[in-house]
Amino acid sequence: MQLPTSTEIVEDLAFFDDWEQRYQYIIDLGKQIPGLSAEAKTSEKLVKGCQSNVWLDYHLHDAKFQFDVDSDAVIVQGLLVLVLSAYHDKSAHEILDFDMDAYFKALDLERHITPTRGNGLRAIVGKIRQIASVV
């Protein structure tokens, strides 16, 4: 899966001056990734958030984590791309070192990562960090 880097995303988003362009960008990112096949969407891969379902799958390649995600909400899917751009094809060490809160602050999207009820995005960050910390 080819993803933009987190640095590229920060730059891209800084370029837009209204919410509509920013959200359209996130929607388009969400539409770009292939997602998971219906068979791959098993309950073990489900990361439950209150507002939409999120599935996470991964494997290791040369000690680097390869992630696949899917969500039934396209904005959530786009936000997942933002998260994965920081975590995909990275080592456990790199994953655990990455400051996701600061990244979302830089993206001006803190609302999506703050611990409000039913926030699937925070759940996925937690899940990925947990995966990285047991390896």
């Binding site: 509509e20 959200y23 929607i27 507002q51 939409s52 039934d72 909400a73 396209v74 904005i75 959530v76």
Partner: peptide
Amino acid sequence: AHPADIGFILDK
């Protein structure tokens, strides 16, 4: 449109 997507865009 997923309800969550609608909610995000309406909120804005």
